[in-house]
Design a protein around this nucleic acid. Structure first.
Lengths: 216, 216
DNA sequence: AGCAAATCAAGTCAACCGTATCGGAATGGG
DNA sequence: CCCATTCCGATACGGTTGACTTGATTTGCT
């Protein structure tokens, strides 16, 4: 889970080179999904047609249909991909952080979940499109919930570490605190996307909140 | 602004009874828009067709098209209506609150912005659908921004009152605090809609946050 | 009463959609 | 070399969509 480039929607596990050209299978699938994500960022999740995707990817409609038997499968693959991409970004941040303080790590994660540049803005925009769809598609909601669950567990781990090190009040309700942080970051992200405040302000608000959690 | 029953999309200001049947004009328009909102809650913003709306409202397609020349106008009217409805709900809460303490009022507002029952859940679900659309439609974003701006100003006012009364730390950064609260509530609302936590948990998190803002 | 505007059901249309099908090219194992 | 398999471009089809047109009916004002 969370390994980029591995989506199981075709039944096999990864690049297999069984028959035919086979070799560049994943790469071409990848290219189509990227076109889908780009279009979602431009026009939203709906209003996307298979023909638009084909044009954007620079391939024929037939090819798109070859890799995704239905439109639903295609969108599902795009959803998986944006989830994997997000997980990869956060994972990279975690790896880079090394043994920094919990507060530093949490702030780094927050930075990764805010639209601080065009790349993040686009990814979050796509994420919000899928979130809106999750409200009427239960399986999408389940996947999203799992993702938030992972982030929640990560925050719980970090906060526990901090508390044990004496960097927070000893009676800190860690579960509530993790929910608060994650919800706050998500809300700030949405409001920043809308333009209600700037990325800088959003980060400052995160810092304000962290000031109140950490004692050191 | 925010007065329910008054939408300016037809050019006149309110019920005018100029010619023809005239009298029930607003009422019928209202009925159609309500069908739109119901459908958005069921299937999302897209995937809605004029024929679906007509069926849901129990009227003919011709009637729908008579009151809204284009689909875009219809959706825009629905957007205005859900905004007005939300403003009315918050306004009612404010009126009911009378001269309660700022903390109580803020908590009441938060309650109104969380999916605590089916009515609120549906309204917030519709709101999120429009928020997703606002990411690719600038005018929708502008309207949303204005709404958040009003809520922000309201929170600033309440927090200032509390600070002047000595119920908060005197050096409280009110602007940041208002942004924090509003973003938190919005994030909690989204996460609750997804099912990441329950309305009760969300309210408890709000209380946790308020505990940290108010000293009394 | 009579006129004009408002109302609105029904039908039509062109555009676009997702999907299915077909035919052939490319490919690599046997 | 051969053939099964993958790949994929081209084309077509049935269905739905938003928009438009038409004509009948209703309503309020004079």
């Amino acid at each position: 889970m969370g390994c980029p480039g591995q989506y199981g929607y075709i039944g096999k596990v990864s690049s297999q080179r069984t028959r035919g050209v086979g070799a560049a299978h994943d790469e071409r699938q990848h290219q189509i999904v990227d076109a889908v994500l780009a279009l979602i960022g431009e026009q939203g999740l709906d209003g996307i047609s298979l023909r638009d995707v084909a044009t954007k990817a620079g391939v024929s409609l037939g090819r798109v249909q070859h890799y995704f038997r239905t439109k639903d499968q295609m969108l599902r693959a795009a959803f998986e991909r944006v989830n994997d991409l997000g997980a990869a970004l956060v994972g990279q941040r975690l790896a880079d952080a090394g043994d920094s303080s919990p507060r530093t790590v949490i702030r780094a994660i927050a930075t990764e979940l805010l639209p601080i540049d065009d790349l993040h803005r686009h990814a979050l925009q796509v994420g919000m499109a899928f979130t809106a769809r999750a409200l009427v598609a239960d399986d999408f909601a389940a996947r999203l919930k799992a993702g938030y669950g992972e982030l929640h567990n990560l925050l719980v781990l970090l906060l526990t570490t901090a508390r044990d090190a004496g960097d927070t009040r000893p009676d800190l309700d860690i579960d509530h605190e993790a929910r608060l942080l994650l919800s706050l970051i998500d809300g700030l992200s949405t409001h920043t996307l809308i333009g209600h405040h700037t990325p800088d302000t959003a980060l400052a608000v995160v810092d304000t909140c962290l000031d109140r959690v950490f004692t050191s």
